[in-house]
Design a protein around this nucleic acid. Structure first.
Lengths: 150, 150
DNA sequence: TAAGTTTATATCGTGCACGACACAAAATTA
DNA sequence: TAATTTTGTGTCGTGCACGATATAAACTTA
């Protein structure tokens, strides 16, 4: 019984890990056109929604620590997608702001989410199933984050 | 409408990506006791189920290419968890076999899956929900792999 | 105000993932 | 059998993730 749980086939964790990588791959061709990676796309989505945010705020939304974000943001600055500058109010804080180039990519990105959903719909996946999955996952995020206090 | 889809909050992909990382973190303390990482744990699970497999077979089961697996397996060989040796039948093929140390870890690993499930049950997540999630994800794996022919 | 603490960001080292490419053994075809 | 293609594994370079640690600014407290 405990034995069965050690079968790859019976684990939930492994499918999550696999689907996560497969989705990144599904995004790849679209992101390639924009010359960005999936984590960079996530940063852009945050900033498209609300610009001029401190690293801190991006960190919380994406649940990525600054030791991951700092180099990522630096790369994006080198690509001229955004600019980083110390806040005058609080010299510890770094404010991230999109450049025109970074803002412009939003138009290219608009069709992307729909195209992934189309792949699923084409295979007779119900939209309700997508919503349901999203709800379950968000519930899990809450629980697993709690168990992992930052 | 297309605009809304670009909100982080409305994406399914982001929660999958987050939960995947959170689960790895939840496993971490247990894996630390064994001195291994999550991908290494996955390799062990494959070999605990059936030992003496070519890299190829592990690659397919974990959906990881050999350029990821080769260094991973080499690290595990250095840790004396497994041994790699060319197949006499087909000199191209490398057979991976667990050492005693690698086999022994199975006992330590047995309680792990149950403990993660316990975290969820403690928060009133139904076991049926876990099964349901697993089924949806396996369906998606099938679809997304098809769209991404190796 | 001086000393200690917290906060915001960053550096460093390690281990995945993966695309591009290399290479030898095996299989196929001419 | 010789030439070509396929197969199985590997190296290399890049970009995450993340634990441990560093550092300076801001805040708290004595």
């Amino acid at each position: 019984m405990e034995e069965d749980q050690l079968l790859l086939e019976n684990q939930v964790c492994f499918p999550i890990y696999s689907v996560s990588r497969l989705i990144t791959k599904a995004y790849q061709p679209h992101l390639d056109k924009m010359g960005i990676t999936y984590p960079q796309y996530l940063v852009l989505m945050v900033l498209w929604e609300k610009d001029k945010l401190p690293v801190n705020s991006i960190s919380k939304q994406l649940m990525l620590k600054t030791n991951t974000l700092s180099p990522l943001l630096k790369r994006m600055e080198k690509m001229e997608l955004l600019e980083r500058r110390r806040s005058p109010q609080d010299e510890r804080s770094v404010i991230v702001e999109l450049t025109k180039k970074g803002l412009k990519l939003k138009n290219m990105a608009k069709p992307i989410p729909g195209e992934l959903v189309n792949i699923l719909l084409k295979e007779n996946i119900q939209l309700s199933e997508v919503i349901q999955l999203k709800n379950i996952l968000n519930e899990w995020i809450e629980i697993l984050s709690k168990n992992n206090k930052d």
